[in-house]
Design a protein around this nucleic acid. Structure first.
Length: 246
DNA sequence: TAGGCCATCTGGTCCT
DNA sequence: AGGACCAGATGGCCTA
């Protein structure tokens, strides 16, 4: 139900119950009742603020609502808000699922901010790859030969195409999977820091936006030999500058 | 123990 | 009128 109900997280989450007396709940039902009693004096003082009563069609001031009505209303609103946040977390989970990131019971879940930043960079990377692919296809099927090759079985110059594809594929999520940690090291081995940051200027917004430096085995200043950590094509950098200068 | 992350509650505002 | 959305506050859990 909740995004944090994952097996790696011990955080318990209260269900969509109206009554929540768990210690985790900031405002348990008992607390709420106490709160209502404590604030009855204030309410009865009448501050002119109106509350909505779910029962009747008529608007009552807070002072006109009895304790139970205030409580029911508050619980109802709380429940809605809880459901809304659960839906939001579900959407966040579904986003995590399609991210180039190792999934598994022993893999620590990406935080929300990390998920969003990674998603952004992922989209930029895919856009860049798509641009290059288009360019490549344009080169291969250039000019009038393109029309002809569309109608007949094309004899593609596979060698250069394969080379280019290889370099592109090296930057695709599937290639990123080799960064996916083995279960044994998963907790300390998230995706490449350079991929997560992806030359993103937004990195400057946070001291350590993804908290990789402190938590994971990616050493700043130590060049990673893999293709994923190599500088991205200039088109990508251009994309970034365009994206961030708007 | 401090800091990060999170769930939940709450009141205000906006929209339908 | 009722619900969605938002941001602030609060406290629990986890990790370095």
């Amino acid at each position: 139900m909740d995004s944090d109900s994952g097996s790696t997280c011990s955080r318990s989450v209260s269900p969509d119950l109206v009554v929540d007396d768990s210690p985790r709940s900031f405002f348990s039902n008992k607390m709420f009742q106490q709160y209502c009693q404590e604030n009855r004096a204030d309410s009865e003082a009448g501050q002119g603020r109106t509350e909505r009563c779910s029962g009747g069609g008529k608007t009552k001031t807070r002072s006109e609502l009895n304790n139970n009505e205030v409580q029911d209303l508050r619980l109802k609103v709380n429940s809605r808000e809880r459901k809304r946040m659960h839906d939001l977390n579900q959407a966040m989970d579904s986003l995590r699922e399609v991210m180039p990131y190792a999934h598994g019971p022993s893999v620590r879940k990406l935080s929300k901010i990390s998920t969003l930043l990674l998603a952004r960079n992922y989209i930029l990377m895919l856009s860049s790859s798509l641009d290059e692919m288009k360019k490549l296809v344009g080169d291969v099927y250039g000019g009038s030969a393109a029309a002809q090759s569309r109608t007949t079985a094309p004899h593609l110059p596979l060698h250069p195409l394969a080379q280019s594809l290889h370099s592109l594929v090296a930057n695709t999520p599937s290639a990123l999977q080799h960064h996916s940690p083995s279960p044994a090291t998963a907790l300390h081995s998230p995706p490449s820091a350079s991929f997560l940051s992806f030359h993103a200027p937004v990195q400057g917004l946070l001291k350590d936006p993804l908290h990789l430096a402190s938590s994971y085995r990616h050493f700043p200043g130590m060049p990673c030999p893999c293709s994923l950590c190599q500088p991205l094509p200039t088109t990508t950098s251009t994309l970034h500058s365009l994206a961030m200068t708007k």
